[in-house]
């Protein structure tokens, strides 16, 4: 496997009375979408602020493409913070130019790229307008452009879809996929796990300053499969079989039923199907794949049961 774009090794961060990160290690592979998931106050933003060099880790090391993270990497990182905004009384075009140049882009280069992004996002008529004259959705587009304008190889989006309307969210999703395909690496940080799980190639779950779980989404899901299937059909299903266990049974109208069945160890789905076919008319048969959210809760319950007690969001700093 290639060197990951980002290697996080045993990072600790302590704020006055609160531990924000407690020995977190991660590998973020190149050209992928990485989900940094966890509830509010878990330490996601603290980790991101260390990666973006807004703050520094107390202990541990971060490597960017094998090099120790240093200020020269800032130009290769694009960051859309959770707390994001724009200068309200500045023109859209000027603002983008300013932010791009602060990221180390030359004036001519920046102007060129602003033009193409503005066109792509249908903002052309607004380029000479002050930001405060734009609708919220348009401002979000401008913010996104500002994040990616300098063509960073690592794009970090903190709660990217909070506050985005569905249309813009989809637009941004498409852009993110396109950027990934063109070679960028994207880190999503969110507490709304369901919003990004279908896009992520890899994820890491963080809870209470610690990493709970990480790896490719596919592998994790396989690992957390529960051998549980949904069955819908018609007939009288009376499962009395040593290989299966019915977790849920619902009688519906006209002799229809809905069941959730768990296979015991060593039993294949085909065994269940065969049994079903010989007894009832099968309309639907589907594996129940756990959502990342379910996995998270399960994992937390297994590893740190004490933390399931009411999570108080900590003040982020």
């Amino acid at each position: 496997m290639k060197t990951p774009i980002l290697e996080v090794r045993d990072v600790h961060k302590q704020y006055a009375a609160h531990t924000a990160l407690d020995g977190v290690s991660l590998d973020i592979p190149e050209h992928s979408i990485f989900g940094l998931l966890g509830p509010n106050g878990a330490g996601k933003t603290s980790l991101i602020r260390i990666i973006t060099q807004i703050t520094a880790a107390d202990e541990g090391e971060i490597r960017f493409r094998g090099e120790k993270l240093n200020p020269s990497h800032i130009a290769q990182i694009g960051y859309l913070p959770e707390e994001r905004g724009l200068y309200k009384k500045m023109k859209v075009g000027e603002q983008l130019l300013y932010l791009a140049r602060l990221r180390g882009l030359g004036r001519a280069d920046a102007t060129e790229r602003i033009k193409s992004w503005i066109t792509r996002f249908d903002l052309k008529p607004w380029i000479e307008k002050n930001v405060e004259d734009l609708s919220k959705g348009m401002q979000q587009k401008v913010q996104f452009i500002a994040t990616v304008l300098h063509e960073p190889s690592l794009i970090i989006l903190d709660e990217p879809f909070s506050g985005f309307d569905p249309i813009n969210a989809n637009l941004i999703k498409d852009e993110i996929l396109r950027l990934r395909d063109e070679g960028s690496t994207i880190i999503f940080s969110t507490h709304r796990m369901e919003s990004v799980e279908e896009m992520c190639d890899n994820i890491a779950l963080i809870n209470r300053s610690r990493k709970v779980l990480d790896g490719p989404v596919r592998t994790i899901k396989d690992q957390f499969k529960t051998q549980t299937y949904e069955v819908e059909g018609k007939g009288r299903l009376m499962v009395m079989h040593p290989d299966f266990e019915v977790l849920k049974h619902q009688e519906r109208e006209n002799g229809h039923f809905y069941d959730v069945i768990k296979l015991h160890a060593g039993v294949t789905p085909n065994d269940l199907l065969r049994y079903l076919i010989s007894n009832v008319e099968v309309h639907a048969f589907r594996e129940l794949i756990p959502s990342i959210n379910d996995i998270f809760i399960r994992r937390v319950r297994e590893t740190m049961p004490e933390s399931l007690v009411e999570q108080k969001p900590e003040i982020k700093s």
């Binding site: 807004i54 960051y79 994001r84 905004g85 913010q143």
Partner: peptide
């Protein structure tokens, strides 16, 4: 204003 506009964090990720 920079703080209430929420542009602060965008800025200090660059400078």
């Amino acid at each position: 204003e920079e703080k209430s506009n929420r542009i602060m964090e965008v800025m200090i990720s660059s400078v």
